[in-house]
Design a protein around this nucleic acid. Sequence first.
DNA 1: TGGCGCACTGTTAACGCTAACATGAAGCAG
DNA 2: CTGCTTCATGTTAGCGTTAACAGTGCGCCA
Lengths: 341, 341
Amino acid sequence: MERSPITRRSRGTGRVRIEDVARAAGVSTQTVSRFLRAPAQVGPEASARIAAAILEVGYVPNLVAGSLASNRSRIVAIIVPTLANPVHAQPVQGLSDALRPQGFQVLVGTTDFQAETEAALIHAFIGRRVDGLAVTGGSFAEPSRQLLEAAGTPVVQLWELPEQPFDMTVGLSNAAIGARMAAHFAERGYRSLAVIGHAEASDTRSAGRVTGYCAEAKRLGLADPLVLLPQRPMLIRDATPLLDRLVIQGVEAVFCTSSQLSVVLLLNTRRLGLAIPSDLAIGGIDSDFATLVDPAITAIRVPAYDVGLKAGRLLLRRLAGEPVPERRIDTGFTFIQRGST
Amino acid sequence: MERSPITRRSRGTGRVRIEDVARAAGVSTQTVSRFLRAPAQVGPEASARIAAAILEVGYVPNLVAGSLASNRSRIVAIIVPTLANPVHAQPVQGLSDALRPQGFQVLVGTTDFQAETEAALIHAFIGRRVDGLAVTGGSFAEPSRQLLEAAGTPVVQLWELPEQPFDMTVGLSNAAIGARMAAHFAERGYRSLAVIGHAEASDTRSAGRVTGYCAEAKRLGLADPLVLLPQRPMLIRDATPLLDRLVIQGVEAVFCTSSQLSVVLLLNTRRLGLAIPSDLAIGGIDSDFATLVDPAITAIRVPAYDVGLKAGRLLLRRLAGEPVPERRIDTGFTFIQRGST
DNA sequence: TGGCGCACTGTTAACGCTAACATGAAGCAG
DNA sequence: CTGCTTCATGTTAGCGTTAACAGTGCGCCA
């Protein structure tokens, strides 16, 4: 069985390689590689010739090959439920801004709130050998945990502050948000409180806010707040019955745990002839529209951009091999008093 | 110069490789590779043993190595100005949804409207050997064009409809949007029109809408609309002087070229005692809040999600080697009449 | 003057996968 | 039974880079 000598078709991509640069500059490929990754290690004449050669031949380094050889991809992935909601899109922006200066790129995956999609994304991202991963929410399924542990990929959870994070976490306390609003209402002299949350059990964020709000009301000696949990997302026509209910119950101040809710509510008070805040005080979560309505809405601003930014910085520190003393970062939140309370 | 035999430290990552699966299943690595990429080519017994072996040894394919060998990364990149604005975040979601089922991942880059950042991102993405690229807006700088042409990467431009796209494009005509609103106003009997746009020259979107609006007004024999181009982004306190101006000039209907603008304007009409639409009709661009105000705002909905989705499908067709007859896709837009006109 | 360290550059062998080609067995028409 | 095709699988040689190691030459100090 004689084998014919190399007649095999070349697999080359025809693109400029590091070798072409090396030849044009009269150095070895390794020197070119060093020039790109650690310029300080390369002498001035060689640097000048390499820089010229790169422009001359039009070289764009193949980062895929580099990743394979170095076992570092310089890619960080982020998993969010959806990009349609700015509260989830902003952390992606923050992460991207933190990482870009260091030459990292961001892979995004959206789950549409499906746990199995999240698991599939984690699998795919580990396959891509991402250097780090940011995941919205607090809990992964067991196979994902094992996968991540086996891969040793640094992971940051976003928005949650579990006592024992899986690896690292950046978030804030929703209970503290609720408590802060309750304390504000108490301070302003409102005695009869209510809160409108979200019925879906998976929305732990809203649930935490409701819990913190009620706990603080109790601690301050107020009556138990009226807790309303509409089933559906809030629409404009749902506002009137809700408001009726609040008025009938003699509620003086209401906290809406989502940003849209407070705006919808406020826009509908006028129809019922309610004066804000004298007949009813409204507190909510901040958004662009909280300041557009009249009166502007007292609100708590959650630092969505910061969550991503700080997650990115945490990952960078870890990837640089620096110690990360604080594996659990509380971003806090901002309370903004406006006319509605 | 005798060289000592292999004492070199292994560079292996210690992770499970395709070879481990092959050994456990009693087949060659190539068969495992085929099982993963083209299962139909692998016999049933071998398939069963490979599937079992993968679970047994906990194999996660290294897609970086695969990309290098096959020269296909199964990554598509998208460049947007910012993710803070839903109109730009939505196409990312659409692209992601179109590509995920086919095993593609999405790399996002944000430019913050800086041309040089865009160029740097394009360079980095080509270095990553992305299989396709979606870019917001119509024009790249010359070095980027050359880079993209040399790399042969399929490119979709988003939001624009140039006569001669660089490669492919998915967008809509802003002039048509303006014209549609002008036609609507004319049809409803409004004779004295105005438009509030955006002064920044880089905002070609707003400029196109203004142009189309005025052209259609002229075509319909109406007087030239009053064109207002506020310098700053619209704040609540800017609304009153603008409204004053509209009233003084006897304007009957105004078109706001951005979504927030129309809401701000409408929310401020009440203070001035203006009745909508009898004293002033307001048309705008759709957003969540267009239906929350009273009256709800007649608006044009731009299909941001669809722009990304269709861009993704276009790229997929191209990457599958299918012919792409329509390199220029007009997504159109939706006109929604509500109470404000 | 010799020895040592430092700065710079070069050589070799992976990294983990897949394209291209090869092989062998089975099917099948003539 | 021959020659041809098809199917399933194996073998070989990269893909383009970087880690690890090996010089080489120079300056500096004892």
